[in-house]
Write a protein that binds this DNA or RNA. Structure first.
Length: 285
DNA sequence: AGTCGCCTGGTA
DNA sequence: TACCAGGCGACT
């Protein structure tokens, strides 16, 4: 499931692969995922060029030369793949944006993509994801609805305020995008294990010391995720279709019954607010 | 705070 | 064949 590190990886890939490219065409077999409508988006984007790529929370943003922004949410199973025109159809390929990329800061070994007709393919098994055309003002409002970026503007002081503001379980708070942006189930579970905090602990009952440890643990696991180019547990692939490797370093996520990497304990699984929650009851108190 | 819906593929 | 996976909004 694409969370902050996965979307950040795609953002960096796209910056190299398609920045400067011209949009030729938009097609889909799943119009419900194109907002506000296929017709409006197609009309607005065809003929524009890609100015830059951005990310906010789990949203991927493609800034266009006409001041509009294409915003993608990958939800659980979304992929954004860059392929050469005519490449074999990808699994669950539902939205295709044809591009002409004259040049670009292509990575080593990808010089062959220069002056090529490429396709940005949005693939999504579950069809929960979407792409939405926004104005600058709409994007500003959307960005405002998210909490601070854990690898950006989130300070320890602000984090302390957020943690102290609620009695909800700390893990549920970490998943609340309005409070803190970009953390999903994988990194929430792992950050709590690294900080040795039980996921069901009431947020406002964390000590100052625990809060600081958690703040640092969040940054650490997110940075590890980015360094590994994301977690390819099931669906996630980067923009060139390659798997990430953070799944090889999961501390607790999806590791029920396996040994804790911190202590002699065994990873347990529970439900918290309806979501699978993994922890070690030996070292997470 | 809990449940449902959006969907589909993988697993018990 | 039933159930589970989970981001996130809507509803109760």
């Amino acid at each position: 499931m694409p969370e902050l590190p996965e979307v950040e990886t795609i953002k960096r890939d796209l910056s190299k692969l398609i920045a400067g490219g011209k949009i030729l065409d938009l097609t889909t077999d799943s119009a419900k995922q194109v907002l506000p409508s296929l017709e409006k988006v197609e009309k607005a984007i065809v003929g524009t060029t890609i100015a830059k790529i951005g990310r906010r929370a789990k949203l991927l943003q493609i800034f266009l030369s006409n001041n509009k922004i294409l915003v993608f949410h990958l939800k659980l199973t979304g992929r954004i793949l860059i392929r050469e025109k005519g490449a074999p159809k990808d699994d669950w390929q539902h939205i295709t944006i044809k591009l002409k990329v004259e040049n670009g800061n292509l990575p080593a070994g990808k010089a062959g993509l220069k002056n090529k007709n490429l396709e940005l393919r949005f693939c999504d098994s579950r069809k929960f994801g979407w792409v939405k055309l926004m104005t600058n003002e709409e994007l500003r409002i959307t960005n405002q609805e998210y909490g601070p970026e854990p690898l950006g503007d989130l300070s320890l002081k602000t984090f302390r305020e957020i943690v102290a503001s609620t009695r909800r379980p700390i893990k549920v708070l970490l998943l609340d995008q309005k409070k803190i942006a970009g953390i999903g189930n994988i990194y929430a579970n792992d950050a709590l294990n690294l900080a040795k905090i039980h996921p069901a602990r009431k947020s406002n009952q964390l000590t100052n010391e625990e809060t600081k440890k958690l703040f640092n643990a969040i940054k650490k696991v997110l940075k590890a995720g980015i360094k590994c180019r994301g977690a390819s547990d099931q669906y996630y692939l980067d923009a060139l279709g390659h798997r990430g490797s953070y799944q090889d370093h999961f501390l607790v996520y999806a590791r029920a019954g396996k040994p804790c990497r911190n202590c002699d304990g065994k990873i347990e699984k529970m439900k918290l607010a309806g979501r699978g929650t993994y922890f070690c009851s030996e070292c997470q108190k």
